[in-house]
Every structure is written in structure tokens, then in C-alpha cells.
């Protein structure tokens, strides 16, 4: 059984249909990268999975459980990293993670926070306010925040937005490390090369529909680029 199952998912904001009948099954431990232009519905799909948005129609199940039936329980399974870091500028790195550890009821929070801050290379800056961090450091801290409760599913919504190439490379390496085989990752990005480096399955979403679905091992950047341009152009 797939860890995430999506059947006939639709989402509309008023008359505007953002998602149009999405069917998708994601196996546990896989890394799925979702490409698509702005307005394709990538963020909306992730927000529905994260229980931040209510579907208009269709079913979404995580570990066999309908997310609308037990949203609190589902949220324990999820970590979300988006282009907004979900952090507080007026709190230090340590205080931010301490706050989220309380929200998630993390056991032995001090040890877990130290472990994650060391992993993302921010332990020496733990007492500094987040407002003093660079964009790259903020995103690394956002990854630590999303991993605090050790979620089996990691949702990444354009996590490399606004990063310079060096910071983006560092982010890719970090995501590869934290993804691992035990965690299921669903990531959206515009950056084909970076996405392919992380993916073992590639999807393209255009006009609210899944228009391409392939094993990443069978797709190279040179194959994907014209396909992406065609779908995006036709979206």
C-alpha cells in the first residue's frame, strides 16, 4: 500500500479550478519531485497534503487514513519546508526550535535541537536572532524545524527560492542527507537540474493536471527540459 494516496483531487478558489482530478500514489521512502510553472497548483497540492487547505473534491489518504478524518494525527507525520521559513525573526535559532518542539511535543527537546542545529551547521549561531541570518541560513534552520519531530513525510515547497547558487547547492546536499531511504519526500521546484539530483520519481504538473510521471532513473536533464518546456508552454 502506498504511503500517500490521492484520488480525484480537485481544488477550486471560487470559479478558478487550481487542481483538476489529480490521481497519485507515493510509496514510502521515495523521493518525488514535482515540477511545474507558477500557478500550476504545486503549492496548493502540498498545502492540501499538509492539511492547510481543504480539497473541493476527491480523497487524500496518508498511511491509509483519510486526512480530513484525522488532521491532527496526520500532521504528526508531516514536516513542511516552504519558501516562507515559518520562523520568527525576533527569536533566536534555539528559541524558534524550542517553540516548535513544544508544539510537536518532542521528547528530550534540548538534545534533539542540538543534534539538528549541528546537522545544519548552525550550532555556533544558536543564540543569535533569526533576523541576523542570511537567507541560506534561514532555510537550513527551516529544515531543522521541519525535522524536529522526525516526520516520516517531508513536504518541500520550492525550498531553494531566493537562494544563491552556492546556498542552493548546500541545501540540495542537506536535503539529500535528511531525505534518506526511511523518509518519503515530496518536493516542488522550478529548478530541473537540482530537482533531478534529489528525485527517484519525476512529475510535471501543468494547468492543475499531472501531465508527466516517470522514474527519475529513466529521465535525463536533456530529456526533461524539452518535455517541461512543452508542457509549461501548453499550460
Amino acid at each position: 500500500m502506498a504511503l500517500i494516496e490521492i484520488e480525484g483531487l480537485e481544488k477550486a478558489f471560487g470559479r478558478h479550478r487550481v487542481l483538476r482530478g489529480i490521481h497519485l500514489a507515493i510509496e514510502a521512502g521515495s523521493s518525488v519531485v514535482l515540477f511545474g510553472p507558477n500557478g500550476a497548483g504545486k503549492t496548493t497540492l502540498l498545502r492540501i497534503l499538509a492539511t492547510l487547505s481543504r480539497p473541493t473534491a476527491g480523497h487524500v489518504r496518508v498511511a491509509g487514513v483519510e486526512i480530513r478524518a484525522n488532521p491532527e494525527g496526520i500532521r504528526q507525520y508531516l514536516g513542511l519546508v516552504s519558501h516562507a521559513p515559518l520562523l520568527y525573526d525576533d527569536l533566536s535559532a534555539w528559541e524558534n526550535l524550542r517553540f516548535y518542539a513544544r508544539l510537536y511535543g518532542v521528547e528530550r527537546p534540548e538534545a534533539r535541537i542540538q543534534e539538528l542545529l549541528e546537522r545544519v551547521g548552525l550550532w555556533p549561531r544558536r543564540k543569535d536572532l533569526v533576523r541576523t541570518f542570511s537567507r541560506g541560513m534561514v532555510q537550513r534552520l527551516a529544515i531543522a524545524r521541519a525535522l524536529l519531530h522526525n516526520p516520516p513525510i517531508l513536504l518541500l515547497d520550492d525550498p531553494d527560492t531566493g537562494l544563491d547558487p552556492q546556498a542552493a547547492e548546500m541545501m540540495t546536499a542537506l536535503l539529500r542527507e535528511v531525505g534518506g531511504s526511511a523518509r518519503t519526500v515530496l518536493m516542488t521546484t522550478h529548478h530541473l537540474e537540482r530537482g533531478l539530483a534529489l528525485a527517484d520519481r519525476v512529475l510535471i504538473l501543468a494547468g492543475g493536471r499531472l501531465v508527466f510521471d516517470a522514474d527519475a532513473a529513466t529521465v535525463s536533464y536533456n530529456d526533461l527540459r524539452p518535455l517541461y518546456d512543452r508542457y509549461v508552454g501548453g499550460a
Binding site: T51, L78, Y104
Partner: peptide, 14 residues
């Protein structure tokens, strides 16, 4: 405005 509302709403409680 700072985009942190989603962080609060992701807490696994009512």
C-alpha cells in the same frame, strides 16, 4: 506577513 501562520496551523493538535 512573515509567513509563520502555517507553522502554527501545522501543530498536531486541535
Amino acid at each position: 506577513d512573515r509567513g509563520s501562520l502555517a507553522g502554527l496551523l501545522l501543530a498536531p493538535v486541535d
